[in-house]
């Protein structure tokens, strides 16, 4: 199960992130094969979110951080000079812990990225909306009120809307930053259900605190630990329950 079935989608090589001279992440190596769900475990402050934000260069938005080492997406270095972070982020979607829906209708939210990318013709939008909301397990709940304000949805529904918004971009990779930790159990279950259905078709990197969730969803697990003030890939805390098999590379 831990064996890579195909060429890796993402490879992290000796990646360090520094704030001024203080390292946040140190010497990270990680390989993400195509089509798997890789769970990234670790205590708070180990830099899980920071690592996740390196994978689609969202880290660029935080001023004052320096990234060393390499991240390769299909073998191409994403931090290389001339690499286009916007195009990268269109192919590597991200879902945050807190849903961030825009103050617009449900429909507008699903189309938010698509409209700007301009790859899908306008005529295909209705179909796209249904597919994306369906994949996010939200279609049945909102299909009769697509033009209602998205902010009126419950937090759990908003999170699934954000998932739909990301899926509408048809990303190859989906980064998930504790996507269910702010949700009620029913919504959390719906999100997990969606993620399981995406398995195999997309590559998922899931940051989670929740060991049980990692066991339910993940094919592979990596663990960040804090050593001398910075996050490193390491063995999980022995006090914790034994997680799913770890990746050979680490």
């Amino acid at each position: 199960m831990a064996e890579s079935r195909s060429a890796p989608v993402l490879e992290v090589r000796d990646l360090s992130v520094l704030a001024a001279t203080q390292p946040i992440l140190r010497g990270i190596n990680l390989t993400v094969p195509a089509g798997v769900i890789l769970a990234l475990l670790g205590p708070s402050g180990a830099g899980k979110s920071t690592l996740l934000r390196c994978l689609n260069r969202l880290i660029d938005l935080t001023p004052g951080l320096r990234v060393q080492g390499e991240v390769r997406f299909h073998g191409q270095s994403i931090f290389a000079a001339g690499a286009d972070p916007d195009a990268l982020r269109a192919r590597i979607g991200i879902l945050f812990q807190q849903p961030a829906v825009f103050p617009a209708s449900i429909r507008q939210n699903v189309l938010f990225g698509v409209r700007h990318a301009g790859r899908v013709p306008r005529g295909d939008w209705p179909e796209l909306i249904e597919r994306a909301l369906g994949e996010a397990s939200l279609w049945e709940e909102v299909k009769d009120r697509l033009d209602a304000p998205a902010l009126r949805l419950s937090v759990g529904q908003q999170q699934r809307l954000c998932l739909a918004r990301t899926l509408a971009m048809n990303p190859e990779v989906l980064l998930l930053d504790e996507p269910t930790s702010a949700l009620d159990p029913r919504s959390a279950e719906a999100v997990e259900h969606s993620l399981l259905r995406l398995k195999g078709r997309r590559t998922l990197v899931l940051v989670t605190h929740n060991l049980a969730q990692a066991r339910r969803l993940a094919d592979q697990t990596a663990c960040l630990v804090v050593r001398e003030g910075a996050g490193e890939i390491g063995l999980p805390d022995p006090d914790l329950d034994r997680p799913a098999p770890t990746v050979g590379e680490i």
């Binding site: 969202l58 938005l61 982020r89 961030a100 825009f102 700007h116 990318a117």
Partner: peptide, 21 residues
């Protein structure tokens, strides 16, 4: 809220598109 900017950038919008939208 930073999450708005990150959400928009995370969808692949360019800085200019994030500014306008």
């Amino acid at each position: 809220p930073r999450r708005y900017l990150e959400a928009a950038a995370g969808l692949g919008l360019t800085t200019e598109q994030v500014i306008w939208s």
